[in-house]
Amino acid sequence: MARLRARSRRGPAQSHNPMPEAAISEALARRKRRDGWFALAGLLIMLAAVLTLVLLLAQLLVDGLPRLSLEFFVEFPSRFPQRAGIYSAWIGTLLVMLVTAFVAVPLGVAAGLYLEEYARRNWLTDLIEINVSNLAGVPSIIYGLLALGLFVNRFSLGQSIAAAGLTLALLIIPVVIVATREAIRAVPRNMREAAYAMGTTQWQMVAHHVLPYSTGSILTGIIIGLSRAIGETAPVITIGALTFIAFLPEAPIGGEFPYINFNWLDAPFTLLPIQIFNWLSRPQTEFHANAAAAALVLIALTLCMNATAIYLRYRYRRRVQW
């Protein structure tokens, strides 16, 4: 700061007796060189980061690809590395994500909507806001501990899919709230005023204008939140996810009346990250190949979700023009 000020003080004085042209071009060249060095340094750092990722992925591919087959997806865990698969793990992951989405999306979007559109600006709202942003940064294991006390023991949900889904929902609700608020904030004020000018109520304005315009960004936020939840291990280990489970929960859709049941919510489960963790800790290297293959599946899932998010953002950006 001090140096900057000193320089700006010298500035006008120099303008009275200008530098010789050679000196100017020399100074320019020096600055350009410095610019170049910085660009190079930035590039190198970026390459180092990307290269690490590529190497990791390549290692995973080399280790895991030979194990990826259709059977791998429909076999249960086994003591034989060649026979072991991720059936119970990916079904568990899917069901837990379903619960998470059903809980986190309505709550998160509604909370964001309320904070942005309805809440009065006062100390209470400020307090809630600070807490929400703080919660988004809380380490996930803390949520696991909270869930262990609250869901597993107090509400006696046990080590069930419902408990895990609720835990992960807690984890991503702040993410969804923040994303929703940012999306809603991006809707220009004059849109709202135009709607009011046409005589709409606040709810009509929100439902017919604000929400449809911000759907893309909200969906993006939701998917990013879910793709964070899908890779979480710590909180689900804390609430006691199982490692060996060679049967599936009761299917939610049945052949006879009433066609839908919720028994699966109460079922024990395992998740992909936990299966990976378990295989990695085994002495036999063949299990490590299984872990690599399962990690590939998990990475592919996360990538797919992120790609969907990017696509949605792109599509909505193109369609909504103010």
Binding site: P77, R79, A241, T243, F244, A246, F247, P268, N278, R282
Partner: peptide, 28 residues
């Protein structure tokens, strides 16, 4: 987790032998 591999192997074989009549879950 030290004993886990033993229990997992037993549980797997047991479930195969029982043909789904009994389900076993093992945690660590």
């Amino acid at each position: 987790s030290t004993v886990y591999p033993i229990i997992e192997a037993m549980a797997e074989e047991f479930q195969i032998a029982e043909q789904g009549a009994v389900n076993v879950t093992v945690g660590i």
